[in-house]
């Protein structure tokens, strides 16, 4: 008898998960400034960061550029890195919004609904993920337009699809990361300061801007790259998207990302289930 109830319950969780997903998406489109910044931000990053930086190698022999960046010119090398920034910032922020729900009281309303907490968290994370993927796709699309003049090209359809998988895994990891951090902090302010602090090293020591191997002679910084999940995300994403030679074998990137994603999901779910509502 009780098994039957439990079965029915699992089945009926699908709609609540969907409703939490839907809420995220409606929220996104209800906030026009967010929609605009999602579109404008990648354009700015590409135009103000990737373009000028790619001029660093102006006049150098193309072979030198290509040896350093795994067979790519610097602009093409930077595009996946910029997608990576979006995943890092967007993912962490989507975790943070779970906290905002607590401050704004909405968490209470869902906590008394006949829904498991893990379902609530999953639905929210999927919602954030959808918005994050939208931004990643816009970035890649805009980069392809710039690429007509600056030599960036998507290698193949299968490569593109694999790149999406890397994006999803990376975003998911940082979304759970945001939720876990959120659980450790009481107020939003201290938390935001900490997030800003930790995003810096995560971003710069991920191979997004500087090839991983270039830091070989620098102790500590070189090693930090290996414990940063974003390193594996950007490495796999770059290779899949552009057909360049990855630093790690692709399967290593995938296994590391999946493992971290599972561990972070469990930690995130635990954090969320322990969250106090008052």
């Amino acid at each position: 008898m009780s098994e039957k109830i439990e079965f029915k319950r699992k089945f009926t969780e699908i709609q609540p998960i969907y409703s939490m997903w839907l809420r995220e998406v409606i929220r996104f489109f209800n906030m026009k400034p967010r929609v605009i910044s999602t579109i404008v931000q990648p354009v700015l990053f590409l135009a103000l960061l990737a373009l000028p930086m790619s001029k660093l190698f102006h006049g150098a022999p193309p072979e030198m550029e290509q040896t350093m960046f795994g067979g790519l010119n610097f602009f093409s090398f930077l595009v996946p890195g910029i997608v990576g920034i979006g995943l890092l910032f967007g993912g962490t922020m989507s975790g943070v919004t779970v906290l905002w729900d607590k401050d704004f009281g909405f968490l209470k309303e869902v906590m008394v609904a006949p829904v498991r907490r893990t379902s609530l968290m999953l639905g929210r994370t999927f919602g954030g993920l959808t918005v994050g993927m939208l931004q990643a796709l816009i970035t890649i699309g805009v980069a392809s337009v710039f690429g007509i003049w600056y030599g960036f090209k998507i290698s193949s359809l299968s490569g593109f699809l694999l790149a999406i998988v890397f994006c999803v895994l990376t975003f998911f990891i940082f979304s759970c990361f945001g939720i876990i951090l959120g659980g450790l902090f009481e107020g939003t302010e201290g938390f935001m300061a900490f997030v800003n602090l930790i995003q810096m090293p995560l971003f710069f020591l991920s191979g997004a801007m500087i090839p991983i191997s270039q830091l070989k002679g620098v102790p500590v910084l070189y090693q930090i790259q290996f414990i940063n999940p974003l390193t594996y995300g950007v490495d796999g994403l770059r290779s899949a998207l552009t057909g360049s030679t990855p630093f790690f074998p692709i399967w290593i990137d995938i296994i590391v990302l999946i493992t971290v994603a599972v561990v972070f999901l469990l930690l995130g779910a635990y954090t969320f289930s322990k969250m106090e509502v008052d």
Partner: peptide, 11 residues
Amino acid sequence: FQDRSSDRVLT
């Protein structure tokens, strides 16, 4: 609830 508990960004 006694204090706010809806999503104000939504209608």
